[in-house]
Design a protein around this nucleic acid. Structure first.
Lengths: 213, 213
DNA sequence: GGAAAACTTGCACGTTCGGAAAAAAGACGT
DNA sequence: ACGTCTTTTTTCCGAACGTGCAAGTTTTCC
């Protein structure tokens, strides 16, 4: 990971990581509104001015972790074999992305903050949008379509994004006892079948989750 | 429309409308970065502080028109007969929403601005998100599902949103000679069929659009 | 070792944001 | 029509934010 990077590059990465870790930790601990860039900078022992060199707002720093992960998803998709069916490629890169490396309760808490805080939500959504654009390009390349002539790649990219978003949203409520991967699998299935109208009353759809894999 | 509202209410609505009209017009004319809240307020003959009472940023004012339209979509959906198939209800409210009441070139221009400007994009996306949340609730009600237990209503609401977003995005490029309604119809069709992989090379998929209905 | 490049930092300036209270305008009862 | 109450608009103002610049420090490269 930290392979052939010079000392300078590694340090930059390290402070960036430290900053967004601190931002996230403080946001979870004390909320977003009372949190100031100064405090974040202080915790990492850099000047407030340096914080601004990395992030243009506290909100950007807080969601930077998720955003970085989104970037990885796009890159991972690029790395999949070109002849793999596109839905399989998507599943292969999206499912692992569900593991954010954060403890579950913290992730729920963070999603709650994002949901309520306008600026945080905006930042989060733009990162999703950026991911979609990149994925649309890869999808177009893999399926022989054209981003600027066909609707298909945009739709498939966006659909992948909302599968993630909707699954996270439902999981974050905590009202279903199901795991995130389980919910996400169902979402992909439903989407790939064109969202058929549910029988009538799913009643206990949460019962004994179907094996995702 | 302006029925049983007192003079005070009507005036409020009027200034709000005037403000977001002015914001949009100025943004289209001179760009977003150089535009200041002062100028917008000045054009409507109110103080800058009043502008802030209505909108918390110039970006919010610029996209307020689209946002209001999104609100209407949600309300129109609520008004559809409860026994109508949900896909038909969605089509019935979304298709008319394509007519933004703006001249085509202006709309393209605006979408271009939104696409490039981070703050504008963020504002625009949050309005889409707000729309999705409302639509998810209505969809849940109509289909006998539960927003907090089933993934279905969230997915269907989000899918409707991206059908709009992707169609607008493709149409705005102007590289297909097709109409917005045409593109949107194809998007809904594809989505309702689970985004089947396109044959292989659509080659000239833009040719003589397929009859949507 | 030393020059060049990059990063950090403090300072300063203009802008933005939002609260508080006075002034203006509408609503309402008599 | 008048006075009073409520709501909106406005002025004033201080705090926070964002950004450019130049000096100081660290890393890189020769």
């Amino acid at each position: 990971m930290t392979d052939d990077l010079g000392l300078r590059e590694r340090k930059k990465l390290a402070t960036r990581q430290a900053l967004c870790d601190a931002a996230l930790k403080l946001a979870l601990a004390e909320g977003v509104t009372t949190l100031t860039p100064e405090r974040i900078a202080e915790k990492v022992h850099v000047s407030p001015r340096t914080f601004r060199n990395y992030f243009s707002s506290k909100e950007e720093a807080i969601v930077a972790g998720l955003q970085d992960r989104a970037q990885q998803v796009a890159e991972n998709l690029r790395r999949r074999p070109a002849d793999e069916p596109i839905w399989e490629s998507l599943r292969a890169v999206l499912v692992p992305s569900l593991d954010t490396g954060m403890p579950g309760p913290d992730l729920r808490h963070l999603l709650g903050l994002i949901r309520c805080h306008h600026a945080l939500l905006a930042e989060h959504l733009t990162s999703f949008e950026a991911l979609s654009r990149q994925m649309a390009e890869v999808i177009a390349e893999r399926t022989g379509t054209d981003v600027n002539r066909d609707i298909y790649p945009r739709l498939l990219a966006d659909v992948s994004g909302i599968a993630l978003k909707a699954s996270l949203g439902l999981w974050a409520t905590g009202t279903t006892g199901r795991g995130l991967g389980d919910i996400f699998g169902e979402a992909l299935d439903l989407l790939s079948r064109g969202l058929p109208r549910p029988a009538v009353a799913p009643e206990h759809s949460a019962d004994t989750g179907p094996p995702a894999t």
